[in-house]
Design a protein around this nucleic acid. Structure first.
Length: 431
RNA sequence: UCCGGCGUAGCUCAAUGGUAGAGCAUCUGGCUGUUAACCAGAGGGUUGUAGGUUCAAGCCCUACCGCCGGAGCCA
């Protein structure tokens, strides 16, 4: 019985001889006993090598095999309280696959610049694995949530002919002699899809060439964007609440171990239960001014304002009815007050800022034509978009959730760059 | 793009303007249950680059490059 067993499953094989395959994470020794920590992506196992049990070469190898060497280990599994994880393998054979060169990431601390330039290796460490496992649960939760509500997943194109906003923040690329742009949102296409299928969402990478150099920005990030025909602002506020609560719950239920590795205090996450506080932009401005901020009505919130606001509440915060002038052309104006847009943002707690942005969309043909003009956008690029208002236009609404910002908050990471396997940052595209 | 901080051993950091050090990693040896093991020893440096001030510069000045943080920007 010598087939490969994954470390996470070790406990099922107590007393049996098994084969583990993995990489040397660390090794320790004491006299005639050697301890080899082996990782395989599912966990870390302690291998015990006693001088009496193995050949001289194997014992010698166990003492010298460098960190991150790949190896096949055979031996008997047993339970032992002294082993991290409660189980260990009594090694009878140790077969190296490749002897690693000097591994640059050592057991002591490293600076961020160094780690980022070794991102391909940094991913092997415990915390990075924990983050990626949480990311995976969040992605599954997003899909499960919308699928279970009868939404249709519709993939938006990544190469697009036009900009949703201006053209300053787009990555440009040559498209057979024409200019194409990397998508910064699937939203306009989701509006078309919603008119076709009712309730839809897309889930894919989006790109922004902004020269933003903050802990909240990467140039390539993933968004989940639902769009719903006949839905109004209140409907998507409720949906956004349930959505974020579901994601949080899924992480708490399925990734308790990983949250512990990240030393994440789960108290604030357990509190993420609807209803969330909802305040209007006007009320938000009042709060800011009361806190001594010199923020003026009509401006959009920057990071300091978002942080200040979200720290006033112990749940995600919904802010609605923003001034129309700081929001994009497709948002519907409030019929009660045309100065305002029917827009919402959700700010994550603990100072993590905006994780959701959404709105009810403008559904009147003449109004949206006027908006396109006002924003100096090329009308011909939006002909197909205007068609949606010509053929059975209905009220509709949607929002986008930034995946990496959500991960950053749930894991309480110091910077968004750790929330994605290979972050693309301002002027940095390596590895 | 702007503001601030920092660039010293493979890594993380020390070093009044006066002989460049420590921990980890590496190498050698020791230790029969280690938990980022520990103990002893060894090797490892054109102090980011280019100028300048000074009897003397890792340290002071200028420029450039790089990294970090923040702002602006940002469905």
């Amino acid at each position: 019985m010598l087939e490969q067993v994954y470390i996470a499953e070790m406990g099922k094989y107590v007393g049996e001889n098994v084969t583990l395959k993995g990489w040397v994470y660390n090794r320790r020794s004491s006299g005639n006993i050697r301890f080899l920590m082996l990782r395989d992506g599912t966990g870390i196992a302690q291998g015990v090598i006693s001088k009496a049990d193995v050949s001289e070469q194997t014992f010698e190898l166990a003492d010298r095999i460098p960190q991150e060497s790949s190896a096949v280990v055979k031996g008997k599994i047993r339970e032992d309280k002294r082993a991290p994880g409660g189980y260990e393998i009594l090694v009878s054979e140790l077969e190296p696959i490749q002897i690693a060169e000097n591994y640059p990431i050592t057991k002591k601390e490293h600076g961020t610049g160094f780690l980022m330039s070794h991102r391909h290796l940094w991913l092997r460490s415990k915390k990075q694995l924990a983050i990626m496992r949480i990311r995976n649960v969040i992605i599954s939760a997003c899909r499960k949530f919308f699928d279970s509500l009868g939404f249709l997943l519709v993939d938006a194109p990544i190469l697009t002919p036009s900009a949703v906003e201006g053209t300053t923040t787009l990555f440009e690329t040559d498209y057979f002699g024409e200019t194409a742009y990397l998508s910064q949102s699937g939203q306009l296409y989701m509006e078309a899809a919603a008119m076709a299928f009712g309730k839809v969402y897309c889930f894919g990478p989006t790109f922004r060439a902004e020269k933003s150099k903050t802990r909240r920005h990467i140039t390539e990030f993933w968004q989940i964007e639902p769009e719903i025909a006949f839905a109004e602002l209140d409907d998507i506020m409720e949906l956004a609440e349930k959505f974020v609560a579901y994601i949080t719950e899924q992480v708490l239920v399925n990734r308790a171990e990983e949250l512990k590795i990240l030393e994440r205090d789960t108290g604030p996450l357990e509190n993420v239960i609807p209803p969330f506080p909802r305040i209007s932009y006007d009320e938000a401005v009042d709060i800011l001014n009361k806190e001594g901020s010199s923020f003026k009505w009509g401006d959009d919130f920057g990071s300091p304002e978002e942080t200040l606001l979200s720290e006033k509440f112990n749940k995600p915060l919904l802010v609605h009815h923003y001034p129309a002038k700081c929001k994009p052309f497709y948002m519907k104006r409030d019929p009660q007050n045309p100065q305002l847009a029917l827009a919402i943002d959700m700010l994550a707690p603990e100072g993590y800022g905006e994780i959701i942005g959404g709105s009810q969309r403008e559904d009147d043909l003449e109004t949206i034509k006027k908006r396109i003009e006002e924003h100096n956008l090329p009308q011909d690029a939006y002909e197909w978009y205007l068609d949606l208002r010509k053929y059975g236009s209905v009220p509709h609404s949607g929002f986008g959730l930034g995946l990496e910002r959500t991960i950053t908050w749930i894991c309480k990471l110091p910077h968004i760059r750790e929330a994605i396997p290979f972050p693309r940052l301002l002027e940095k595209c390596y590895p």
